[in-house]
Design a protein around this nucleic acid. Structure first.
Length: 547
RNA sequence: GCGCCAGUAGCUCAGCUGGAUAGAGCGUCGGCCUCCGGAGCCGAAGGUCCCGCGUUCGAAUCGCGGCUGGCGCACCA
């Protein structure tokens, strides 16, 4: 039993003794060390239930409390009725052996019980290279997936390729136009087509590899070639970024497998479909949408499905593949589709919960270069790609930058700053803390893994900085669990910076080697190193032994 | 017009799902290198938490109404 569990149990019993029922006792670590190590607002919550003043309730609770021996050094009642507990010294250092024993697994838990969860992210159309917005999504999605793995879920990382539909035809026609222009033939890129230099390069490579179609007459071949090449380029960028997927799901397969037609049939059968102006509509207003949506275009527009039906069909496959939990990481510019996909699934009336799938939306990324915002437009062909960014800035810094902000806030990626690789970059600060801890063992001529906690008197770690450091280490698993539940990887970077700060301060103020406390401090140094490494590794960032 | 997100120190942002005196980095000012790495450490200044009303023991956090900025509101995806 951890100190928290013991305390919680004791408080529940004490509440019962004074005639109150406390189902869920909240314990928190106060900001201010003067308020103890663990605090509860239980008395404030029970005051209403008992019809008594909070402080009086707190006093009765404390009087009724039966605590295990050696757990708590001091109990205070403070402020409006908080009960503050000060852990006994032996309890504080007691966290260290557990950290060393768990090693690389310290911080893992089992909230997910091995249940499958699908995390879909990036899902860029194969119409161009990955830009900085996709980069944010790659970092965010991969970190959320890792967080879920750390908390006991069986995660499948999935990339959905929109390799069918109008945008792909646009791409093919754009490349085709460049092929023809290169031959001196009259050709224009379509109005909604793609303009970037990469289109010209694709055209050159197409001609080089298709000597029998030098004029790009075979638009289907051009399409296949362009999609294949762009997918390969995206894969290279993702690989450089250290992101891999378990499943690449192709939109085109939804057509070839009949999933789109099947979904269409089900929607019609469920009775929410009608025809108007020659098109087929889904009555999404039945489910709270502000207007109905077209599912299949009219004959004059080509009789194609809109994106809506394949999107719904795709999410049906997630459900049918056994994923009762699905998380979609997407840019906020797609937020309009959230309600529609969910409504489409509801209209099928096949028992899928209304909040399925779950969405994590992140705001846009602005790229700053030379002090001004770079114009980003895929069609105009001006953007910074993920590949360039990783090459210029380095994988670790790029990942860290992307993850240090909440997804809901607009993110300004300052390329110059990130490239500068100076002390302004927090990732170096955290990595430096890890390198320093490692340095102690290097100088001592010892393998960190050889340092064990058993048989070592840890109660000599009496300095306030040491107690604070250990408490921070003890918080790691709860922080991970909270970050996973909230889908907020930025909590990890914030935690790591705080831990690194404490580690640097401790390192600066106290020596390890040659001191009477050497054995115990080596245990602490190894624990700090381990937790820094675990946090960085989770985020896909290296934990270097030297800088 | 409707919807989603944001608004906190000069700048960039945290604030653990309603807690105690709102925090950190950068920048500014002032200190600290015979040392396990100074890519570091210690300290100071700096706040109308966008505004107003409400909910309650308690609000940056929740509700309502505004203001400002971003993004969406296709027979594009």
């Amino acid at each position: 039993m951890t100190p928290h569990e013991s305390l919680r149990a004791a408080l529940v019993q004490a509440a019962a003794r004074i005639g109150a029922s406390a189902a869920d006792v909240a314990l928190e670590r106060p900001r201010d060390a003067a308020h103890g190590d663990v605090a509860t607002n239980l008395a404030l919550l029970l005051a209403k239930q008992l019809g008594q003043k909070p402080r009086a309730v707190a006093e009765r609770l404390v009087a009724a409390l039966e605590l295990p021996a050696g757990l708590i050094r001091k109990t205070d009642i403070a402020g409006p009725g908080f009960i503050n507990f000060f852990l006994a010294d032996a309890q504080v250092v007691g966290a260290l052996p557990a950290i060393l024993a768990a090693g690389p697994d310290y911080g893992r838990s089992d909230a997910g019980h091995g249940a499958p969860v699908n995390v879909e992210f990036v899902s860029a159309n194969p119409t161009g290279p990955l830009h900085v917005g996709h980069g944010r999504q790659a970092a965010l999605g991969d970190a959320i997936a890792a967080l879920l793995e750390w908390t006991g879920w069986r995660v499948s990382r999935e990339f959905y390729y929109n390799d069918a539909g109008g945008q792909i035809m646009n791409l093919a026609l754009s490349v085709q136009a460049r092929v023809r222009q290169a031959r001196g033939l009259p050709a224009e890129i379509p109005e909604q087509g793609y303009q970037g230099d990469y289109i010209r390069e694709l055209a050159e490579r197409y001609v080089a590899e298709h000597p029998r179609d030098l004029e790009g007459a075979d638009v289907e071949a051009v399409r296949r070639f362009a999609v294949r090449e762009l997918r390969a380029e995206q894969d290279r960028d993702l690989q450089a970024f250290g992101v891999t997927f378990d499943v690449y799901y192709l939109e085109s397969s939804l057509y070839t497998d009949g999933k789109v037609d099947e979904t269409m049939r089900r929607l019609v059968a469920a009775g929410h479909v009608y025809e108007r102006d020659g098109a087929l509509w889904l009555k999404t207003t039945d489910f709270g949408d502000d207007k109905d949506r077209v599912m299949k275009k009219s004959a004059e527009k080509g009789s194609d499905y809109t994106y809506f039906v394949p999107d719904v069909a795709y999410h049906v496959t997630k459900w049918e593949r056994g994923f009762r939990h699905a998380i979609n990481v997407q840019g906020a510019d797609h937020h309009g589709t959230v309600a529609r996909v969910r409504i489409g699934l509801q209209a099928l009336e096949m028992g899928i919960p209304p909040e399925y799938p779950e969405y994590v939306l992140h705001q846009m990324v602005t790229v700053m270069r030379g002090g001004e915002a770079a114009k980003l437009s895929k069609r105009a062909g001006s953007y910074v790609t993920v590949g360039e960014l990783v090459e210029e800035v380095g994988r670790d810094a790029v990942r860290y930058f992307y993850l240090m902000r909440r997804g809901e806030t607009h993110f300004v990626f300052d390329v110059d700053l990130a490239k500068s690789q100076t002390d302004e970059n927090p990732v170096f600060y955290v990595q430096m803390a890890h390198a320093r801890m490692t340095g102690i063992f290097r100088v001592a001529g010892r393998d960190p893994a050889s340092v064990r906690a058993d048989g070592i008197d840890l109660t000599v770690l009496t300095q306030p900085e040491e107690a604070e450091l250990i408490k921070e280490l003890a918080d790691f698993p709860a922080m991970i669990a909270g970050a996973a539940a909230a889908r907020e990887p930025h909590r990890i970077t914030g935690y790591l910076e705080g831990l690194a700060r404490l580690a640097h301060a401790w390192y600066h103020k106290y020596r390890v080697l040659g001191e009477p406390e050497e054995a115990a401090r080596l245990v602490l140094a190894r624990a700090v190193r381990q937790v820094l490494a675990n946090g960085l590794t989770l985020l896909g960032i290296r934990a270097p032994d030297r800088m």
